[in-house]
Design a protein around this nucleic acid. Structure first.
Lengths: 297, 297
DNA sequence: CACCGAACCGAAAATATCTTTCATCCGTGA
DNA sequence: TCACGGATGAAAGATATTTTCGGTTCGGTG
């Protein structure tokens, strides 16, 4: 709503005020309407605006000319621009938590905003040295086990799916017993990754511990860098922790954060193993093609 | 971020990407021109834009329609608005694709940025009316089945986990046969949700179809609103489509987008069923507490 | 008070722009 | 190769904008 200086378009209201004295009565009515409700007027045709102001098309066009536009068409475009700017000006107001009676549109906006925030926090907080070390370990690993339970289990599977796609050997475990059983098979050069937001999930810590004790390179992806899980982790990747609210459980933001970390790991590994990763990715894409119907076009 | 008129607003570029696959060659040329230079195109008449893109007026109008506007006139208005916003909003900082030799810190930054972008696009492109209807259906459903394969399967599980947490009956299926077997058990009042980025995954379409034919309320979460899956969907929730690069497969951004939609569904349902959802959430939290060791440190 | 002229104004014609229709063209699959 | 269906653009048709032009009002003047 601020007026810009030399910038074209500038404030229409100001221009209207300046030029008002040199306008005839009907033209003033038009100018006023335009200044008061740019958005509304932008939606109108010459005829519409003429009727609204109780004048004629000719007068509207004359007014547009006076305001410095070649014709009404261009005034209208400028109006649309102005409206859009005003619209975006009164932006955020997303500061509050999601309330029980928020309309669904607000829910969408707030969730998107919060997840964006989570991503930014995570990216800012990540330790690239540890990340790089984890990537190096993964790229060279004979096999990789990933542990995760509940929501984190899905992240574990996501990572596994990706690694498999580029030809690495990876397994996700959400059954603690099987996880431990498998963990003891690991040996130096292998990698074990535990994903847990709280860092205190025993079912995930135990297999990591087993892997750790058998000499595998262990990685913890957690929101609590001082939690028990880090005891057995050679490398710790910290995810961001945002306050959780009644309607937005922690699982939601921790998942977003964990997924970003996982994506970074994946892309990092794909870079390191580009020679084999690129063809593998292409191949998996090919293989899937026939599972899709002919497509929409 | 809705715009003044009925027309869906948000990022035009995102919409172009989403709809591009369903466009013909000439229309793609027009769409591309519009997406690349909104300001320039806003200054052109139909004829002008037709000449610029080497097509005809008819094609330009057709493209405008496909993008959701009643005609070229309105597209032009929207373009003017967009141009104004870009002008004031300054440059969106163009990031290049992730390169094979990018240092890990750049990878983190680029991935975070792209996922944020995906979230914004998704939020802008989502149809809140459909979303609201889906929420209503879910909140009232006797049971809910969710179909998803591969990466989308994880999203399906995520949704299921969340719904279960607030006391709803939900199942995720990734086995196509079992999915169909279960789908035929559905009846009016039940809800079936298919999650597929391409919208052409036969293994996911079949169960949805079965559910559809048995009278369940069917929902499709897809990046292609014109794809086969929507044939059997009462409600369609569109996820955003970002260009995929060699090191960043489509699965990555579609997952981010799908998860946002799923989160919106969940929060929406939690709002509707607040009386039962809040205690249920609290209870599940309690139940998990004992799985965690005494705490940090 | 009647008259005059100038500016104002809007109806309608003229023009530009947008939309629709329809015949043609091109690619595709049998 | 042929037939088909969708994509495409030329041109007709519909709207919107601009221009023209004559009527009207208002202030000044004899």
């Amino acid at each position: 709503m601020k007026e810009s200086f030399g910038s074209p378009g500038g404030s229409l209201a100001a221009k209207v005020r300046t030029l008002a004295p040199s306008m005839t009565r009907s033209m003033q009515r038009v100018a006023e309407a335009v200044a008061n409700d740019p958005a509304g007027c932008a939606a109108l045709t010459v005829t519409g605006l003429a009727e609204l102001t109780g004048t004629s098309e000719a007068t509207v066009v004359r007014t547009a000319r006076l305001l410095g536009y070649p014709g009404y068409r261009d005034l209208r475009l400028a109006l649309a621009g102005l409206a859009a700017q005003q619209q975006s000006g009164r932006a955020p107001a997303i500061t509050t938590d999601i309330a029980v009676d928020d309309p669904i549109a607000d829910v969408v906006a707030k969730l998107a905003y919060e997840e964006q925030q989570t991503l930014a926090d995570t990216a800012a907080g990540i330790d690239t040295v540890q990340l790089d070390a984890a990537v190096t370990a993964l790229a060279a690993a004979r096999r990789t086990d990933v542990y995760g339970i509940g929501a984190s289990g899905l992240v574990a599977q996501d990572l596994t799916q990706k690694l498999l796609r580029i030809g690495l050997i990876a397994h996700a475990h959400s059954d603690p017993h099987l996880a431990v059983t498998n963990a003891v098979q690991l040996r130096p050069g292998d990698v074990a990754i535990a994903i847990t937001h709280s860092g205190s999930t025993g079912d995930v810590i135990e297999p990591l511990r087993a892997a750790f004790e058998h000499g595998a390179t262990t990685v913890a992806i957690t929101g609590r860098p001082d939690s028990p899980v880090t005891q057995y982790a050679d490398l710790v990747l910290t995810t961001s922790t945002s306050r959780e609210t009644e309607l937005r459980p922690a699982a939601m933001s921790s998942r977003t954060s964990q997924l970003l970390v996982v994506d970074c790991l994946f892309v990092g590994v794909a870079q390191r193993t580009y020679e084999t990763a690129a063809p593998a990715l292409a191949a998996s894409y090919e293989a899937l093609a026939h599972r899709h119907r002919s497509g929409s076009r």
